[in-house]
């Protein structure tokens, strides 16, 4: 799915630049936002094909809340979400979630920061092709 539009929401501008550079080399169109509010506004305006979200932004569960809002919204509930975070939640002894069940992640893929460019690209490609297969692509 060449030229697909990808939204990156992260409060770390340096990390945004890294991910943006990797994605743009593969001809993806990248839109970025530095926080939850800006992210939601831009997602509504730009209607991206995929969103890459950070978990902890201004508040530590911003990414979770964003993904929950998006999955509830009929306009975006088919948009795949890739979550990138520096907080690991896969150990079963992972961080405490005050947002409810810690195993409940309303995202399609969960990757631990830092992520290798190859891994990121292959996950992005997989999510976008799944979206096309499911007939929800543009």
């Amino acid at each position: 799915m060449a030229n697909a539009k990808i939204m990156i929401v992260d409060d770390d501008p340096d990390y945004i630049d890294v991910v943006k550079t990797i994605l743009e080399r593969e001809q993806y169109t990248v839109v970025t936002a530095g926080n939850k509010i800006e992210g939601m506004e831009k997602i509504r305006a730009e209607k991206p094909d995929l969103a890459i979200l950070d978990v902890m932004m201004n508040a530590w569960q911003d990414g979770f809340e964003m993904s929950r809002q998006l999955k509830k919204d009929p306009q975006f509930n088919n948009m795949p979400i890739l979550m990138l975070t520096a907080v690991d939640n896969r150990t079963g002894i992972g961080f405490k979630s005050t947002a409810g069940d810690p195993t409940w992640l309303p995202v399609d893929v969960f990757l631990d920061k830092p992520v290798e460019p190859d891994v990121l690209l292959s996950e992005v490609k997989k999510l976008l092709s799944n979206k096309v297969e499911n007939g929800t692509g543009i």
Partner: peptide, 23 residues
Amino acid sequence: EYVLRVTHDIKSHLATIQSCLGM
């Protein structure tokens, strides 16, 4: 919450440094 915040901050700085160098 303090440990979680520190965890995130240390790891995210390191992740960005590593990713920038990786580029």
